[in-house]
Design a binder for these strands. Structure first.
Lengths: 234, 234
DNA sequence: CGACATTAAATTGTTGACACTTTACACTCG
DNA sequence: CGAGTGTAAAGTGTCAACAATTTAATGTCG
């Protein structure tokens, strides 16, 4: 075997393990809602479900704790983490800073192909927004943000951003946008794309930061009105 | 027991556990250099050292992996994570974004007491810098940055920032500043403090972001000259 | 002498059993 | 009845033994 000919890493050496597998599976159970937020996880039951012993399950849960998806209370058990609105607000702030930084980086290194891709996503979102088709808009919106972060070319940034977005999925109720907020949000996307296309790093940062902050305010407004409705119901 | 009289949480219910304890201990072993970077961790040996079985040790190591302090290679073992210069550069970028955001937040909500504290730290750093006393400068410098992040009032931000700083300690060789870079760096601190004191959020962000970015460049310059020296030695 | 196959040792992976803690339930007493 | 107590069940915490894999060492052949 010639050592220098293969640019590929020799990481075919079993890149996965049982705890890692369980971690991914439990994670998707949480994010898909198959495990209810705030609820308790029964180690025995979970281990039985997967046909393994509790050891690997416990290891997987330790990882998920560090990722902020579950909480471990000693001698009490593992609980699916539930976020209150204050934590969500904090996360949105950090997300704004990270997303702004991503756009700034991308603006200073982007090529025509990336801009074209962004414009395509933007056009598709515009269509979906005009049709008030949230189900079509949502994945495009996600792809738009993720593309910017990914193409920024900073792996640490990507990991941090995605980890935060993952945690934010623990907060249900905020995922919906009503009617014209879709169009409002997408106008902000347009400004971001233009800043990146102009290679204006400062503007890319600012428009992107503001976009997430406005998203936070939209969520907050919705959350307040939801809380009011809850109050009246009680 | 009256329920509302005690503002204290009843979280005295054993807030720690053996794996958490081990996690903290192993972490400090890594950061103190008692476990050498890049080296392999022997589970049996480590468990024997603490007088416990391998189970809790493995759980602790899973947490440390998610925190980015160790790497787990299935069937191969656990290795203390070693950072290459490219990863360090990426981390500095994210750190710049987070620290900039912290300063921005603090500028928009700070009070006189906080500014006074910052000025005190600044004065002490100025003294240490003029005396070229790195050992005195370093903890002050750390406290300065951490104080800004802490007082920004965003717990998620604080956790993310500290996690990143912790990981950066895995990169040895960069911790030293020579002669006049101390004074250069501290002049940047002064600009940050002034921006915060003026409650100028935009300026606080920019000066703080730039400060970390310049720190990155200073590190990079040092790293390049070190690599050159290494080359000559070979 | 070096490359390769074979075997032994060391180390990780997983399990089931047991100890300890918490929780739920029934019981007693005021 | 209701508060408090005691007991049983359920669940988490820890361990030591066994299985599987990797690594090191040994021996063999070209």
């Amino acid at each position: 075997m010639s050592p220098s000919s293969a640019a590929h890493d020799v990481s075919f050496l079993r890149l996965t393990s049982l705890p890692m597998l369980l971690e991914r599976e439990i994670e998707s159970m949480i994010l898909d809602g198959r495990l209810s937020i705030g609820g308790r996880i029964n180690e025995n039951q979970l281990a039985a479900t997967f046909g393994v012993s509790r050891g690997p399950v416990r290891e997987a849960l330790r990882s998920l704790e560090a990722l902020g998806l579950v909480e471990l209370l000693p001698n009490r058990g593992v609980f699916i983490r539930s976020l209150d609105i204050a934590q969500v607000v904090e996360m949105y702030g950090v997300r704004a800073a990270l997303f702004g930084y991503a756009a700034q980086l991308l603006a200073s290194r982007t090529d025509a192909g990336e801009v074209a891709r962004l414009r395509t996503l933007l056009d598709e979102m515009t269509e979906a927004a005009q049709a008030h088709d949230f189900d079509r808009y949502y994945p495009l919106n996600f792809a738009f943000h993720d593309f910017i972060v990914e193409q920024a070319g900073n792996g640490v940034l990507t990991a941090q951003y995605r980890g935060l977005v993952k945690q934010l999925r623990l907060y249900r109720a905020g995922n919906l946008m009503t009617g014209n907020t879709l169009e409002l949000s997408n106008e902000e996307h347009a400004r971001i794309v233009e800043a990146i296309a102009r290679r204006d790093a400062a503007s890319a940062y600012q428009t992107s930061f503001d976009h997430v902050e406005r998203g936070k305010e939209r969520l907050l407004a919705r959350s307040v009105s939801l809380a009011r409705a809850e109050e009246r119901r009680a």
